[in-house]
Amino acid sequence: MATSKEIRRRIKSVRSTRQITKAMQLVSAVKMRSAQRTALASRTYAKLSWALLQQLAQVTPEHLHPLLTNRTKVAKEAVVVITANRGLAGSFNAALIEHVAAYLRGRVAAGVACDIILLGKRGRALVTRYGFSVVAEYERLDSYTDMAQTLPIARQAIKDFLEKRYDQVTLAYTEFYNTLKQEPLTVTLLPTKVSALKAAMERTVGALGTGQEPEHIFEPTPQLVLDALLPRCIEMQVYQATLESSASEHSARMVAMKNATDAANDLISDLTLSYNQLRQAGITRELTEISAGRLALEK
């Protein structure tokens, strides 16, 4: 049985832990809201650019554009993994890393050499724990508000793909559904498949039209409009993925910290109960001793 002094010390330590988790919960809640807002703000562009791309795909043959062309043999693949910089976010990082590791094992078994491109420090576990090779690591910012912040990643991916350094580029991130539900996901970024892009957009933006639009005049030519639009769609997809990942991270952390705060509250009330019981027992014992002593003196 612990002494009352020990219990007091434990209550104190749990209290200070609770203070920290509570603070982290509040901070994450604020960050989560702003991340969700940014993700929402960029959806109009995503939706409009997708609708336009679908229209263009109908008038230009898909095999004409190098970014749309499937390579017959995929020998080398790049996987862009978007994780958080910090932990303490429940299963957020672990779930994504598990998912990516499973995906990579499948690709390696299929005879594809995979290189990893990291965004976020936590992704390093893929090297240390699973032994995959990382070729590049981008610095993950605390918040994303401007597409220029993710542009280098998309540009480099497009360049490497066009120069045939990679035959496929895959994006792995955590999709945000709501505060309680986030899911790790891998999507093919390059070559762009219009059908896959539609699925990606519909996941985030909601149902879209069929793209059955009347004939447009394209200036200068459909090909040139596609040349201008396609890279933007790809850049947008990377940007959107980072926004989704941020929103997921902060939501996951908020929920994890809320659980920790609740657990600390339970622990404190349990400890307080046993502390009071112990104190009561002590008082009762002392009283019996005093009355016993008095009885002994009276005799």
Partner: peptide
Amino acid sequence: PTQMGQITVLPNHLPLVAN
């Protein structure tokens, strides 16, 4: 401002996509 020069769009313009 488009690549083909500046255009002004009024109501009932033809469907158009321009860089």
